[in-house]
Design a protein around this nucleic acid. Structure first.
Lengths: 246, 246
DNA sequence: CGTATGGTTGACCCCGCTCAATTGGTGTGG
DNA sequence: CCACACCAATTGAGCGGGGTCAACCATACG
């Protein structure tokens, strides 16, 4: 879990109402789908989990057939380069969708692993795409999800300082957790320093040092993996150049 | 133009055959669309240009209504940060599609400017999306284009050396030009050193130095903006870690 | 209590940035 | 046709952020 105490747990939804944490709930509500439409969507959803930390949802090279929406827990995606170094590509929180970058190929371009206890909904992509031809709202939603990821991917491409990167990481995490009903100022990192460093393209030592510096300046407190943000504005200011378009 | 001598010029297509350089030609051929389908697609295409270097196709904040396929010339996309620095996001060659990252918002998130004489086809996106609901192949093509861009965007996110970055840039350019019938080993850069540097997140001086080093090592020759690649394998080897998934 | 693993801290170094001077190509006016 | 100006590109000198390497510390587990 993301929070030490048990956080909001997604309901399972039913034939008429989708899971509240589902990535498609917004689309459903906005579009006002009728019962028949919802039933169609439900047909191609496969709930999976809970699975323990370390479980792989898919591995690089696996044939691509489904995208997955995280319902609880955190999923990390990564690749392993020629020298055997792990390169973290992203972290996915409840409500977020994994596997979109696989669409253009036949196979997943990366690995996805659970960082804690994770449950997901799998959507068969071929069936989803077919359904989208009959549901313009769903198609629009898929286009938006994909387009959004293009922008997300450009985020860390800039030449930003270690401080800016870590600030942006924390602000992004904070916002996303808050959007799902978790605390925006106090949370537990489900990923190791090494994971964060790899994601931000920094050395683990640098992440450690920046955390220390920020703590010394009173911006936040860090204890192990527990983070409390004391000056959200300061962090936001640091992160602004990185997060510009988000 | 990309080449000093007049290169292959796109035919204008007709009611029954799409422009050969069109980003959707592959989809059309693969799907074997009938005449009625092609006519539908043609209805929502608007040829534009030729326009001189410096012309803006759209600017950041403009309401988004269309994506554009480059037919001739090079287009550069960029944003301007708070300090007024230009940040280059990408270069688009004939056959490539601009504006996909704008889909999830109401407005373009960046500027697009012609680097030389440019002609494009504009596709009204709402109309394209509507048409896609009736043409599963077109929908699939759009999904793939979007997904592909997610991967492209991750390319320069890694922490690569200046040499690796420039090599990857040149290899990518070479491949894309070759795919359109231009020479893979000899071409003219339509962008300035500053543009390249900004795109690669390097200082212009560094780009200059790396070019010199590569020339000294006999990997390529550079004169002004003319580049000739002498050892494609050497460049490929350097670029491999960056281009991994492309 | 010993060991393993992840995190922290310190010392040092290198790649690429900054600043500054120079070159060279291009355009313009005399 | 030349002189000058202008701007992009190049080259050099010096520096600093962040990486590397290594030692140390702390919590988790056998």
């Amino acid at each position: 879990m993301v929070l030490p105490a048990a956080g909001p747990i997604a309901d399972d939804g039913d034939e008429f109402r989708f899971c509240s944490t589902c990535a498609f709930s917004a689309a459903c509500v906005a579009e006002g789908y009728d019962k028949a439409a919802l039933r169609s969507l439900h047909c191609l959803v496969e709930h999976e989990g809970p699975m323990p930390a370390g479980t792989h949802l898919f591995r690089e090279g696996d044939p691509f057939q489904a995208i997955a929406a995280v319902r609880a827990g955190t999923v990390k995606t990564y690749v392993v380069d020629d020298e055997g170094n792990e390169q973290v590509l992203g972290f996915f929180l409840p409500g977020e969708v994994i596997g979109l970058s696989a669409i253009h190929g036949e196979r997943y371009p990366c690995n996805a692993v659970a960082l804690d206890t994770v449950t997901v909904c799998r959507f068969s992509f071929p069936m989803l795409a077919t359904l989208a031809t009959r549901m313009p709202g769903l198609q629009r939603h898929l286009f938006r999800l994909l387009s959004q990821d293009i922008n997300k991917a450009s985020l860390l491409a800039g030449d930003f300082s270690a401080d800016q990167r870590l600030a942006a990481f924390l602000v992004s995490l904070s916002r996303r957790l808050a959007a799902r009903g978790f605390s925006a100022t106090r949370f537990v990192l489900t990923m190791s320093r090494g994971d964060i460093a790899s994601y931000l393209r920094l050395a683990p030592e640098t992440v450690s040092r920046v955390f220390r510096r920020m703590a010394d300046e009173g911006v936040l407190t860090v204890d192990r993996r527990e983070v409390q943000i004391l000056q959200p504005e300061a962090l936001e200011a640091l992160a602004r150049p990185v997060l510009r378009s988000l």
